[in-house]
């Protein structure tokens, strides 16, 4: 297919998606905003903007569902036996009958709809104006801390300055009379401070703030106590000191939301090599559900991170999004091979 024609497919699909998806997305966004504003939760003097994540996730998911379903129903070669698909296949050069361009159109429309939500609605729901990097360094091979083993080292990337440490380890049964574990945090060999509370049980989260400084390594020292601690991935989080714009963070969320949509559309296209429209739409809707509401992938965590003021571009989010992308690309390749055989 020639580039202008490809652009035509992208724009046509995108326009159709916007026609069908804009109204439900705006309605969902308005309803969520009204509910959030009219009945805010009572939290006293401490704000909890992360709690509003359902009110941001719902309209964003509405946009994802509406765009993907509208696009798949619009472009004829997504499913087998659709009216007009033979003409499109003859005119199209690639083996997929313009499906990749249609997917691009779907993603473009979704990006246009989700970007204002991620940047504007998130701020309206209370997301802070700046975000900070929250980095969870990988734990050592044996991440146990007790009276017998008194320190654990965590390596940090040299990309940022750091200003706080959050610790939330797993607590074992006490080895003697119950005395909570007192921990000290060292950075590059210097004492950054002692944690302000002893850790007694699993789920307890203790924070330590310190003046911003570059760090290459954080060491957790077991000062005293009788509670052994384990540090699985995510039990220690280091907070970056650099202020990052929430608008950029919103853009990242909109990009992250593209990953499940892309994977779902590509797998729906693969299903479409052997199935008709109802089956393809069912596959698509199920996959979008799993990738967004179902919590598989990075979308769910990214919505909460945006509202909490945590920089979304963490390694976990990047890996989950790339995995979705790889699944989608593989599905498109498989769909192309399957169509050549038929």
């Amino acid at each position: 297919m020639t580039p202008p024609a490809a652009r035509g497919i992208v724009l046509m699909t995108s326009r159709r998606c916007l026609q069908l998806a804009t109204l439900p997305t705006l309605a969902a966004a308005a309803a969520c905003w009204l509910v959030a504003v009219w009945s805010p939760p009572a939290t006293g003097p401490t704000a909890a903007p992360g709690a509003a994540s359902p009110w941001l996730a719902l309209p964003t998911c509405t946009a994802v569902f509406a765009c993907t379903i509208a696009g798949v129903l619009f472009w004829p070669t997504f499913a087998r036996g659709r009216e007009g698909s033979d003409w499109v296949v003859r005119l199209a050069r690639g083996g997929l009958g313009g499906v990749p361009q249609a997917i691009l159109g779907i993603l473009l429309a979704q990006l246009l709809l989700t970007l204002p939500l991620a940047c504007g609605l998130a701020r309206a729901l209370g997301a802070p104006a700046v975000a900070h990097l929250h980095h969870a360094p990988p734990p050592p091979a044996a991440p146990l801390l007790a009276a017998a083993r008194r320190s654990l080292e965590f390596a940090l990337p040299a990309t940022d300055e750091w200003c706080a440490v959050h610790v939330q380890p797993l607590a074992g049964l006490p080895t003697a009379d119950l005395v909570g574990a007192a921990l000290a945090i060292h950075g590059d060999g210097e004492l950054l401070g002692n944690l302000p509370a002893r850790i007694v049980q699993t789920g307890q989260r203790v924070e330590l703030s310190f003046p911003r400084r570059p760090l290459r390594e954080v060491r957790v020292e077991y000062v005293d106590g009788s509670v052994p601690l384990a540090f699985p991935p995510g039990a220690l989080v280091v907070v970056g000191a650099t202020d990052r714009s929430t608008l950029w963070n919103g853009l990242l969320l909109a990009l992250v939301a593209l990953a499940p949509a892309f994977a779902a559309c590509a797998l729906a296209a693969l299903a479409g090599t052997a199935a008709g429209t109802p089956t393809v739409v069912t596959v698509l809707a199920s996959l979008v559900f799993v990738g967004t509401i179902g919590g598989v992938g990075a979308f769910d965590g990214a919505v909460t991170a945006l509202l909490r003021g945590e920089w979304i571009a963490s390694a976990a989010v990047r890996n989950a999004s790339l995995t979705c992308g790889a699944i989608g690309a593989s599905a498109l390749l498989a769909a192309s091979l399957a169509r050549r055989r038929t």
Binding site: P41, S53, R308
Partner: peptide
């Protein structure tokens, strides 16, 4: 409900009690 329920579980595991309480109210 699916969003609210999931987010409450996440908050219980990782967030502060204020956020968990706010999510519980939702």
């Amino acid at each position: 409900l699916p969003f609210a329920w999931r987010s409450l579980g996440d908050a219980g595991r990782t967030a502060d009690p204020v956020e968990a309480f706010a999510r519980a109210q939702h």
